Amino acid sequence: MLTRRRALLADAAAAGAASTAGVLGALDGTDPVPVPAAAPAPGPPARRALRPSAYRLQPLTGYGPPRASLARTPVRREPLLSVSGRGRTMVLTFDDGPDPRYTPDILDTLAAYEVRAMFFVCGEMADDNRDLLARMADDGHVVGNHTWSHPLLTGLSRRRIRTEMERTCEVVDAAYGEPPRWFRAPYGAWNRAAFQLGAELGMEPLAWTVDTLDWTAPGTRTIVGRVEDGAAPGVVVLSHDAGGDRSQSVRALRSYLPRLLDSGYHLTVPRRQPA
């Protein structure tokens, strides 16, 4: 990229002031926007080296079609709890994965009913299961950032929070095909740094309206009841596809999903519009 930029600037200088103004005008709005690099998190080293430029230096230009840019992400003081939509719209979300033992079954069920969902992935799980992120992209699901190692953010430094987010953004971008546009704090523990850093990385914070508490393994019938009792327009349902034995979550989805559809609910994913 730097070689290409030097060539452009050299040509502009040789052509004179008028030509220079034309070149700079053509490149307006595409100058790199540096973001301070995060220091590595304490503990064992990462499994593989990360691309240093992906979320720190934006390229001057590219050789393919440009990605649609999003409007500047607002810094919120609390996460979004519900979504807007026409009629009886709901969103199903799954945290902590992907896990090859349970996520494929969840994807199969969603595909059988042509329903899209959101998956808030942990970077260390996504890194080992990139094929599942690719399938999520193919099936039209939305992948969000759930940090790298699922820590309690309120006990971390700002630098460590940034590292947790950035490393996961790297993996999602590489495996899913685009960076995550949504973020969810582990345990629902948000703080000011999480909101600010998430916005800097272009992500909106999304919480939930209905918690299935499936991580406690309360029984398939109990999980189904919690989803059906909490169903309402705009509801965001929290379930898990990793972090333990999620066989109850898999079976529950097979039960409540067709019932919600038969009741007239539209299960979909939120969309953020390009600027």
Rank of each mutant, 00 (worst) to 15 (best):
A117V: 03
T154R: 03
A49H: 12
G202K: 07
D229Q: 07
Q196S: 11
C122S: 14
A68G: 14
H150N: 11
A10S: 13
G198S: 14
A232Y: 00
S255I: 15
T209C: 02
D128L: 12
I223F: 04
P98S: 07
A275I: 05
G85H: 01
A194C: 08
T93K: 07
R88K: 14
E114L: 02
F183A: 12
S82C: 07
P258S: 08
P59K: 06
I161R: 00
R259Q: 15
R76K: 03
A39W: 07
A231L: 00
V83C: 04
W148C: 04
N191M: 04
R160W: 04
F120M: 10
A26Y: 12
R6A: 14
G177V: 05
G244W: 12
A185N: 01
N145M: 06
Q248C: 03
L206Q: 09
L132P: 05
M90I: 00
G177R: 02
D139V: 05
D128A: 15
R272L: 14
D131H: 08
R5G: 02
S19E: 15
P100I: 06
S255H: 14
L260P: 09
G97F: 13
P59L: 06
G25H: 01
L201Q: 08
V115C: 10
T93G: 08
D262Q: 14
L81D: 01
P65H: 10
L156W: 06
D11P: 02
R4I: 02
C169T: 10
P151F: 05
A126L: 08
L213T: 09
N145H: 11
R271F: 02
P98I: 02
P274M: 09
T220L: 01
P218G: 04
T109D: 05
L8D: 13
A26N: 13
V75E: 09
T20L: 08
T216V: 10
W190M: 08
V33D: 14
G43R: 02
Q273F: 11
L81V: 00
V224K: 13
E200D: 15
P274S: 07
G243D: 11
L92D: 03
R51W: 15
